[in-house]
């Protein structure tokens, strides 16, 4: 099994637990028995994507979309800032649904070994990856049009953390099971093809202050980075890796990830050959 970035794993566990706690506590608060100290925030309150879908409403009516609160706007700004510096760290480190898919992928890896996450040829796959921008446009238009968080009805993340409440639409459950099933073959299928928030954050890869770089003079072309990239990015073919699907997971890097040669694959503001 390839080396995994340990600190990332821990941060993922922490945020997954926090989200689960908040979801459960909100349900307890509704029946008058909240866990003390956590407050009664709902899952919507800690979703930075709520801020994104609210932008239009905020500008036109001065109010947020129903059920979204100011905390979402604050978190959206924080996540955008972090993405501007480090790229979509949120996807690779924080998003509980990304984490959930990674955990399921462990089963897939056991089942298919090296064939895991390689079933769709990249030459087709790279085009399929643009699907999530279609989803993003649809979500933004529909939310602006209706003033409601319409994506919740199709959101597998919402289904996962609210399945006990009776508030989840059947469509969201279907989406959750589809993601569960697909995660046995593909790593992070929701992130790659559907997630509208991942789509927004992915764009920051084009302007991020600290990009991923490969030192072509020390690289031994072993392709360890390619094989370890959950998003199937052909990392070893490029010098500066600018790809809208990178989730800044550090799994390909020399220091923390799969690259066996030191200082060869790094997130660095400067060109590696110049060091």
């Amino acid at each position: 099994m390839a080396k995994r970035v340990k600190v990332r794993k821990w941060i993922q566990i922490i945020f997954f637990t926090v989200a689960a706690f908040i979801a459960v506590n909100h349900s307890l608060a509704e029946v008058g028995k909240p866990i003390p100290l956590i407050g009664e925030a709902s899952l919507h309150a800690i979703c930075p994507f709520g801020g994104v879908v609210s932008i239009y409403n905020l500008l036109t009516t001065g109010s947020l979309v129903k059920m979204i609160h100011e905390s979402s706007v604050v978190l959206m700004i924080i996540v955008f800032l972090s993405a501007l510096i480090f790229g979509p760290l949120f996807c690779g480190w924080i998003c509980p649904f990304g984490t959930f898919q990674e955990w399921i992928s462990r089963i897939g890896r056991k089942l298919f070994k090296k064939r895991y996450n390689t079933f769709i040829p990249y030459k087709f796959d790279k085009y399929l990856r643009f699907l999530r921008y279609g989803v993003l446009i649809w979500v933004l238009i529909m939310t602006a049009w209706s003033g409601k968080i319409i994506f919740a009805d199709y959101d597998p993340y919402y289904a996962l953390f609210q399945f006990w409440t009776g508030e989840v639409a059947v469509t969201a459950f279907i989406a959750l099971f589809a993601v569960l099933g697909l995660s046995l073959f593909i790593e992070r299928p929701f992130c790659k093809y559907v997630c509208p928030y991942g789509a927004v954050l992915g764009l920051f890869n084009f302007i991020r202050i600290i990009p991923l770089r490969r030192n072509v003079s020390t690289c031994i072309s072993c392709s360890a980075c390619d094989k370890n990239c959950p998003m199937n990015i052909p990392v070893s073919k490029k010098k500066k890796i600018i790809d809208h699907q990178c989730i800044s997971c550090f799994e390909c890097t020399s220091e923390d990830g799969a690259c066996p040669v030191s200082s060869t694959m790094e997130f660095n503001t400067k060109k590696l050959e110049e060091k």
Binding site: V7, W93, F267, N268
Partner: peptide, 18 residues
Amino acid sequence: RIKAKTAGISFFILMLGG
């Protein structure tokens, strides 16, 4: 150069600060 740990800690600081 940014290591994974630095990125993780920076995110925490950014989030708490924000």
